[in-house]
Amino acid sequence: MRIILIGPPGAGKGTQAARLQEALHIPAISTGDIFRANVKGETELGKLAKRYMDAGEYVPDEVTNKMVADRLGQDDAKNGFLLDGYPRTAAQVDELDKMLAAADVALDAVVELTADTDEVVGRLLARAQIQGRSDDTEDVIRHRLDVYAAETQPLTTIYADRGLLKQVDGLGEIDEVTDRLLKALQA
């Protein structure tokens, strides 16, 4: 299967991506992991990305797209993958479409983990406290959720229009959410 997992910060994407990877025997590919691997490996793209990351800026689409294309071309992703954190914008959707067309493959599903905003804010505040992340204040978290709503949420419309979108409630016990995800993917 070739799947995209999207949802607001704090909806549980990372946790569920790891569980789906195991259940479906496909790699969970996170742009954050790709960035870290390229930076650690000191690849040309990694050096370029590091300059932006060190400055606290978003890595430009051009660099992100190249890293994702490289990762999707690796052997373990040939028979399927789960993308977590990509695409984030309509321009990245277009780029992913080109990558998939060039490989003569298509997406099977786009799963949106939905979650109540106040619940997500509570989760992220608790996580920030546990991890000692003093920069994750309620204002910062709500701003990240606003950015998600403005930039990434519109992708759900694109994928719904293509008949690929499946929405799954991301709240509840971890096992319950995993079960809901697997049932939605089988439907």
Rank of each mutant, 00 (worst) to 15 (best):
M1F: 13
M1P: 13
I3N: 01
I4T: 07
I6G: 09
I6V: 14
P9F: 02
P9R: 00
G12Q: 01
G12P: 03
K13P: 03
G14R: 00
T15A: 06
A18M: 08
A18S: 12
R19D: 07
L20Q: 03
H25D: 14
H25W: 09
P27S: 13
I29C: 05
S30F: 06
I34L: 12
G41M: 12
L45G: 05
A49C: 04
K50D: 03
Y52I: 08
Y52D: 02
G56R: 01
D61R: 00
T64M: 10
T64D: 02
T64C: 13
N65W: 06
M67R: 01
M67I: 04
R71Q: 05
L72V: 07
Q74L: 15
D75A: 15
K78F: 11
L82Q: 06
D84K: 08
P87M: 09
D94W: 11
D94M: 15
D97Y: 03
L100Y: 01
A101P: 08
A106G: 11
D108F: 10
A115Y: 06
D116A: 14
L124D: 00
A126D: 11
A126P: 09
R127Q: 04
R127P: 01
A128N: 01
Q129G: 09
I130F: 09
Q131F: 10
R133D: 00
D146P: 05
D146V: 05
E151T: 14
Q153P: 07
Q153K: 14
T157Q: 13
T157S: 15
I158H: 10
I158T: 13
L164N: 04
Q167S: 12
V168K: 03
L171Y: 10
G172T: 07
G172Y: 05
E173K: 13
I174A: 14
I174R: 10
I174V: 10
I174W: 12
D175E: 13
E176G: 11
R180M: 08
L181T: 00
L181Q: 05
K183C: 14
Q186C: 13
